[in-house]
Design a binder for these strands. Sequence first.
DNA 1: CGTAGAAACTTTTTT
DNA 2: AGTTTCTACG
Length: 719
Amino acid sequence: MPDGHALVLAGAGSGKTRVLTTRIAWLIQSGRVTPGGVLAVTFTNKAAREMVTRLTAMLPVNPRGLWIGTFHGLANRLLRAHHQESGLPREFQILDTQDQLSAVKRLSKALNIDEDRFAPRDLQRFINGQKEEGLRARDVPAGDEVTRKQVEFFAAYDEQCQREGVADFAELLLRSYELLKRNEILRQHYQARFRYILVDEFQDTNRLQYRWLKLFAGAETRLFAVGDDDQSIYGFRGANVGNLAEFEKEYSKGKVVRLEQNYRSQGNILDAANALISNNTQRLGKNLWTSEGQGDPLRVFEGESDADEARFIAEEVSALRRGEGGAGMRLVDIAVLYRSNAQSRVLEHALFGAGIPYRVYGGLRFFERAEVKHALAYLRLVANPSDDNSFLRVANFPPRGIGARSVEQLQDAAKRNAGSLFDAVDTKSKAGNFKKLIEELQIETKDLSLPEMVEHVIHRSGLIEHFKNEREGADRVENLEELVNAAAAFGQDDARTEAEEEISPLVAFLSHAALEAGDHQAAEGQDALQMMTVHSAKGLEFNAVFMSGLEEGLFPHEQSVMAKDGLEEERRLAYVAITRARKRLYLTFAQTRMLHGQTRYSLASRFLEEIPEGLKKWLTPRFARQQRTMSFESAGRRQAPADNRDNKDTYFPKKESIGYARDRDMSGFRIGQNVTHAKFGSGVIVDAEGDGGDARVQVNFGKQGVKWLAVAVAKLQAA
DNA sequence: CGTAGAAACTTTTTT
DNA sequence: AGTTTCTACG
């Protein structure tokens, strides 16, 4: 590969990580650069770890000297090293998404914002959106009244963060960007230092991240970007695929290396992925091929309910594990993927029932659990008492007589002094005891090691005691004890960097907790089925993959279909899911699904239809639904009179009773039934109102949308 | 002030 | 369905 800038378009399974790591190793081995002159950026901590692991296996390098990490991790490192020039206290804390939302809510209350007009969530999104574009409040053009208010809030929010010594995720990037932009000496230093900058998953960078990278690149720096436009799945948080084209224009000057050979999946799986993604219009263009055989067809299963789908998956996993004649698969080589975290519950239930060990990634992560956040809040106050978020979180937890009233008074006092809540505490009040507790903790933990410190704080704060007395608190106590272990593990972790060593281990640990949220549950040795969202599966591969919940409204998600370019992003998401599989791919969906406490009737995902029939093998008959609908109707007719419902001898399956209870005279149609319409095609009845000649039904036509139709007029046909 | 139970809200994906 | 926030009462 030539020694200039380069853009590599690397298809799924083409060995992207290998390309990156071997390039770094080659650069170092050939003497072109020392390990300290390399800056390598990834998006996930998982990817960063993977890279470091592979690299240290190839080369005798000290991982501490390597600048390999996520954008946020590296930005944090930079800000810690130059906290003074960045205008941050040495002990500044990082707000994760939850923390940020509570900070926004708190400010919104203090400023008497009308939350019906300006929901905290929307304000949060507004602020992050602007920061990701590289804009401060003063830079945002405020055309209309609404924007003006939002900008005003944005400014107040940033002031609050500054006062409290905290920074949200976007702030880490923006502030480190501004630091280098402003400080020429520092900029020149880093530009001279980093001779090679390598970026993974370049399609996921947002505008600010791209500018951030460019700022690090001096005249002598070579940029090497690897990405795949077909795997761009973070548009919703500001990722700009356009950066690929931009990079091509600005750096690689039209030269693009394409990696199109896939070393992962068998032919049928790859053909399916190619066929699906070809429905997208916005592509740079690329077609994956493999020298492997065609392999198995894709197995398609239609369940009558989400529980039915889950049961099938559990049975099939058991079969794969046993091996059906051949060698059995290990569970870690099998993944169940879903669109949204909420889907994991039903699956977990079925797997638990079948006695299959599983591990769920994402969802509520370790450092995001309430009890752990409480413990962290105490630790954060020890490090930085002006952290009002943390103060409010634990001032009265466990309860110590500081109610809403006292808190309000404190907030007023703090406002008058333009200081922190902590400083506003009157030593003689009940809150004074809390303040004293924190001050004592500061003294008591001064000479303790990090794990000892954590251990001491969870006891002295009364958290352990509190949860021990709680009925269902055992898990929480366990998690608190686990936090001590996490602190111990962190102490020995190579992840601690030179810059971080200048600051206290406690502050380093707290940053780690915010930035990593703790998906470190992975390496626990036991063979377990892997469960995760499609998003978190990116970059991974498995022998067998179950893609579940392939239904209109869920995958593609209804919220995305509305959004600009949303459908294409959903399709890329499906593409990512398919290309995770090496040998076996299952596509499953369900006719009904419980969502927010009510049953939803859905159609098969359009993505399923976009995969050619020749590649698929239906495990359930394609007309299964009609057959079931018929038995469903006859079951309805068998229904006992309503006054018998309390009779325990009469068993009503749940689904049928729902169908019957909502059944009305719709001239033979009922909820859940498949119908066809002359103009809209096939759909499923999801709701009904009125009766006789006035009966109207709501039909979900999938792509054509959901429509209310008058039965007397619409000429619906039972399908 | 603290608690229990009611009411309201969820509404995708994550560093 | 599950979780968070509100409300009423001790």
